[in-house]
């Protein structure tokens, strides 16, 4: 993939969110609608096109944890707010690739998909409970890549919070096929690209019945 090749060539350690999104999308993971914008006007135009509310994120391969860096603004409801936030984000960091305008996705169920390179097992895929409880509950499970469909299904059934993946408080059961495809796809990325050290998709929000990546980070070796 050109994005990865280019980043490796430039000696970068991470891909920006915008680049990371493209990489995981190529692997079969649904990603939330978004556009990388360079100007205020462009940002407003994209926001109006996808409909409010939107999120704005300062996009740079140099910032891997955007929330901690104050680079994420959620629930933006009109053009005026877009303009204001755009300026704020641009002022905070010098080397932004642009500002990512993202459709806000609603869904109470958040999961995580990841890829690591284990010293012993090589590339391994992680799946588990995402969002703010990820580290507190550590309800995650791993499989060694490449994954078969059965491996992915086993992972889905293995986490303690698997009930959240069924019909839950009026929300439909998760489309297991999409989730399986995402897990298998991320494992295949690890096999195909030796230069990928880690991938983090958190949160993966269940939107209706579809798992949709709302944030993504690809770390290079």
């Amino acid at each position: 993939m050109d994005i990865i090749k280019k980043a490796v060539k430039e000696g970068r350690k991470t891909l920006s969110e915008y680049e990371s999104r493209q990489v995981i999308e190529s692997a079969g993971v649904f990603v939330v609608a978004a556009a990388l914008t360079k100007t205020k006007e462009e940002a407003i135009q994209e926001a109006e096109k996808m409909g409010y509310p939107v999120a704005l994120k300062g996009c740079s391969s140099e910032i891997s944890h955007k929330t901690e860096a104050g680079m994420v603004a959620l629930n933006i409801n009109n053009a005026q707010e877009v303009a204001q936030v755009f300026d704020e984000l641009s002022a905070k960091a010098k080397n932004l690739d642009g500002v990512l305008v993202e459709k806000m996705v609603r869904g109470a169920r958040e999961f995580v998909i990841g890829l690591i390179r284990d010293p012993n097992f090589g590339p391994c895929v992680m799946f588990g409970l995402g969002g703010i409880f990820t580290e507190a509950l550590q309800d995650v499970t791993f499989r060694v890549a490449p994954l078969t469909r059965e491996d992915a299904l086993e992972m889905i059934d293995e986490i303690k919070t698997k009930k959240l993946l069924g019909e839950f408080r009026g929300s439909p059961a998760v489309d297991r096929e999409s989730l399986t495809k995402a897990l298998v796809g991320i494992g295949d990325l690890g096999i195909k690209y030796d230069c990928i050290a880690e991938i983090d998709i958190n949160p993966l929000i269940i939107c209706g019945d579809k798992p949709v990546a709302v944030d993504a980070l690809v770390v290079l070796k």
Partner: peptide, 17 residues
């Protein structure tokens, strides 16, 4: 650098494998 790596240190990889 990522959540995934910090969650993998606790034997869960071996167990899953």
């Amino acid at each position: 650098q990522s959540h995934t790596a910090s969650l993998s240190g606790n034997y869960k990889v071996t167990s899953g494998a």
